[in-house]
């Protein structure tokens, strides 16, 4: 197995509401490998989304550390964490969170612009990502003209266009029907296999389990199971993308 790209070490996190303090993460440790899709499952309130937020540089833990791509994430200043996410992280959320005013291709180009990629190069990269999610012929449409499944695939394209080494997905299929959910799950799996990206997914959707290489269970803020999934549905056959230069942020 490849060396872990994301190491979560004894992470704790509590939330305080009024006078009540609830411990959501009780010292979670987990090493996640690149090139596969790791799925964290657990009932709602188990702390799985909080774990994802801490691991991805979105939510500061109370204790413990996160080592991402050899950087001690939470020892960095806030701007450097933003920068780290800009350069290395992609996100897919349950709500598609697309801007109503932008066409599919513009949704993908927008965050690319902040990496320093602009103009025709950014459009070419965005179109590649839309081709990858099978939406090349809908690139000119606004979200209003897209189905739920198509919107989530645009969101995936937005997340993968910069070629992130870390891809985080929070309930990516929960708002989708069976067929579209399966499409998105296959996509995420393929990105891990094809690019060697570290894909970390949290969900309570059992349909995702079939596509994950590894399934970690969390309950009440502690890990209760960690299993390989030998029966994972193989990633679908790949069509080779044309070679293209690296992003230079």
């Amino acid at each position: 197995m490849t060396a872990a790209s994301l190491i979560i070490d004894r992470v704790t996190r509590s939330f305080t509401t009024g006078r009540v303090t609830a411990r959501v993460l009780g010292g979670v440790s987990l090493a996640i490998a690149p090139g596969e899709m790791t799925l964290i499952v657990g009932p709602s309130g188990s702390g799985k989304s909080t774990l994802l937020a801490v691991a991805s540089g979105l939510l500061r833990p109370d204790g413990g550390s996160v080592r991402a791509l050899d950087a001690d994430l939470w020892s960095l200043p806030a701007e450097a964490i933003d920068r780290f996410r800009l350069e290395h992280c992609g996100f897919v959320f349950q709500g598609f969170n697309l801007f109503p005013a932008l066409t599919a291709v513009d949704q993908v180009v927008l965050p690319l612009q902040y990496t320093g990629l602009v103009g025709a190069a950014a459009y070419a990269r965005a179109m590649e990502a839309l081709v990858a999610v099978g939406l090349a012929d809908k690139a000119h449409l606004h979200p209003l003209a897209l189905s739920g499944g198509e919107k989530q695939r645009v969101a995936v394209a937005r997340a993968i266009a910069k070629g992130p080494q870390l891809l985080f997905a929070d309930e990516p299929t929960s708002a989708l029907d069976k067929e579209n959910g399966a499409k998105v799950a296959r996509l995420l799996h393929t990105i891990a296999r094809r690019d060697g990206a570290t894909v970390l997914c949290v969900s309570h959707d059992p349909r995702l389990i079939d596509h994950a290489d590894r399934v970690v269970r969390i309950e009440d803020g502690v890990l209760t199971a960690d299993e390989r999934n030998p029966s994972a549905v193989p990633a679908p056959p790949l069509a080779m993308a044309p070679p293209r230069p690296e992003i230079s942020p």
Binding site: P34, A136, K138, G163, R186, R193
Partner: peptide
């Protein structure tokens, strides 16, 4: 399964999903 996992160019995977793989429809 892991044979294609390391792609030096971090390329976006091209994968046929559903029926809308008819190629590039809207070039900017």
């Amino acid at each position: 399964r892991l044979g294609n996992s390391v792609s030096p160019s971090r390329a976006v995977p091209t994968i046929a999903v559903g029926s809308s793989d008819s190629g590039v429809g809207a070039r900017p």
